[in-house]
Write a protein that binds this DNA or RNA. Sequence first.
DNA 1: TTGCAATTCAAACAGATGTTTGATACACTT
DNA 2: AAGTGTATCAAACATCTGTTTGAATTGCAA
Lengths: 213, 213
Amino acid sequence: MNPSPVNQPAHTELPESTRDRLIASAREVFAESGFKGATIREICRRAEVNVAAVNYHFNGKEALFMAALELEPLENLIGQADAATNAEDRLAGFIREFLIRLMEGYCTPHSQLIMRELLEPSPALDSIASEFIAPLHEHLAGLVREIAGGRLTDDAVRRCVFSVFGQCSYYRNSREMNRRIYPALDYDAAEIEATALQITEFSLAGIRKLAGK
Amino acid sequence: MNPSPVNQPAHTELPESTRDRLIASAREVFAESGFKGATIREICRRAEVNVAAVNYHFNGKEALFMAALELEPLENLIGQADAATNAEDRLAGFIREFLIRLMEGYCTPHSQLIMRELLEPSPALDSIASEFIAPLHEHLAGLVREIAGGRLTDDAVRRCVFSVFGQCSYYRNSREMNRRIYPALDYDAAEIEATALQITEFSLAGIRKLAGK
DNA sequence: TTGCAATTCAAACAGATGTTTGATACACTT
DNA sequence: AAGTGTATCAAACATCTGTTTGAATTGCAA
């Protein structure tokens, strides 16, 4: 695209290798348009590389998708919220951290990509489910059991986990819809904190009520 | 496709007009694959009509999508749950009816189509938001206010509405994911009833706690 | 420099997609 | 029977898709 590709550092952006730039822009485009909607040409345009690079460095669109999916950055979500000692505070921390990642994912395409997987099964769904989502469910189930004091059946615990997950993910999943219904609503840091607090209080009351406390 | 298109009533299926068959199969395919993923040829194949019929009876893919979106069958959701008198029972009825539509939508592609819209903005999102989702939010907000006895700010009410919506829609949105994490889980009528009851109790406790009751 | 392998590139390829076309069949009126 | 407007169809069209190709460029060692 540059008329004279002399060796100038220029805008100092895109310093990484072609492969890394491809992964970065793939996360963006896949997150925005899904696996099917994303196009190789758009990914390469943003990465400023030739379309053939996808098949050279990876082996096609699907392999690039898998490469864009490394889950480590999201896995510390559990440890992050485990500073507190009692289960109630740890639940509050988990909801807060989860919500922040969900909503800030609007800027960081990485978690956005994972959240989209949650709704739209793709070839990578199985590994995401077992490696990322299932541990979150187990962790949350432990917190719910502790808060309920062992007074809930496994089914009830599972539904409580779903309730907490559902409340949080709704803020991301229905963002476009809610933006139209509540145009004035803006999810800045303060709004996210307030939302996390309310979800926590709401959920604690729900769990305790179900546990008969 | 038939080698000899003589005038036989044959399998007596697809008795409707070409236009109606197109809308029916469009609902199926759009619900399964989304707006972008769905193809005219697949829609026409299932409707057993020529591909040109889409541009003859409608004006292209997008117009067919709009036509497949008539919202009336879902709008009686509010009235359906308004038999009870007190707000608590009406909330219970709403959650139950909403959940049934969400989960049975797996078989009826019509609501499946709407739910997909909620996650994946398409050209039809604006009309869906204002004509279908917004009234549901308003109705639910009224119930929450009544239950809380006017002791909640507008923001808190909105977040309670989001919590109820979020819990319910999670069961549909994350169905594929949860099927992998809990392979034994089956959403038959009994499981749906139990889930609706637990979401209701969970939410009532949350609303009351936030209202300071 | 020379040689060699890795990398990048423009161009082309093969297939799928939404749309259009022109012909044909049908139902109904005059 | 001739006319008329609707409906259907196979085929073609233009565009976009992921992928491949073969040449050009680069980086680096001998």
